[in-house]
């Protein structure tokens, strides 16, 4: 590099650095952009509203309909209510290596969950049905804590996700899976 003898030359070095920064930032854009548009990786962003006052009377989130169900076409959907201070149901079986859609809502305050060791993660906001789509690769039990402060009992609000190898995966006649029968 030539020695700096005037302001113009000094600014040239800064301009050169700005180009390097542009390169680094372009790498971030490219990786995120490609995985988003080509691999369809997004944060869960399904927007669907629901009246929190009548969640339990709704057809979808009635108590008998909660938990894991397999449709006739094989699609796996998990329905959960997050409420102060528990998830219903507390144990959620899912098949290993198959696409799973998790639909959650809250009748009271803001909750959230993550499934440890996986990318499954969402806020659960009263007034909305949060939907998370993922594939569980690792068989075994995964903890599912509530991850947003929801009141003084928040620390006790944990569920369990049981990822069942496909060979052991079973459902009952209605297409429902439960932790006790899937094992």
């Amino acid at each position: 590099m030539a020695p700096i003898t005037n302001e113009q030359e000094l600014q040239k070095t800064e301009f050169r650095w700005a180009m390097i920064v542009t390169g680094a930032v372009t790498v971030l854009f490219a990786v995120i952009g490609i995985s988003s548009f080509v691999m369809a990786l997004h944060p869960p962003s399904h927007v669907e509203s629901i009246d929190p006052a009548t969640v339990s009377q709704s057809k979808e989130f009635a108590e008998s309909n909660l938990g894991t169900s397999v449709d006739p076409d094989g699609a796996v959907t998990v329905r959960i209510i997050a409420t102060q201070f528990a998830f219903v149901p507390r144990c959620i079986p899912v098949p290993q290596g198959k696409p799973v859609t998790i639909r959650v809502t809250s009748p009271d305050v803001i909750h959230g969950f993550l499934i440890a060791g996986t990318n499954a993660n969402t806020m659960v906001v009263p007034g909305y049905v949060a939907e998370v789509r993922t594939v569980f690769g690792t068989a075994g039990d995964h903890l599912m804590p509530c991850h947003e402060f929801c009141g003084l009992g928040h620390s006790e609000m944990w569920a369990l996700v049981r990822v069942v190898p496909q060979a052991q995966w079973q459902t009952d006649a209605d297409g429902k899976a439960r932790c006790d029968i899937s094992r």
């Binding site: 680094a24 790498v27 990786v31 995985s35 990786l41 869960p44 990318n119 569980f136």
Partner: peptide
């Protein structure tokens, strides 16, 4: 600054590929 930024981008890429992508799809 170049070394620091290079390390940063590499570390980010490593986490992206080896932890995030390895944990499966999300949408």
């Amino acid at each position: 600054a170049g070394a620091a930024m290079g390390l940063l981008v590499l570390a980010w890429l490593a986490v992206y590929v080896f932890i995030f992508l390895a944990r499966g799809p999300i949408s």
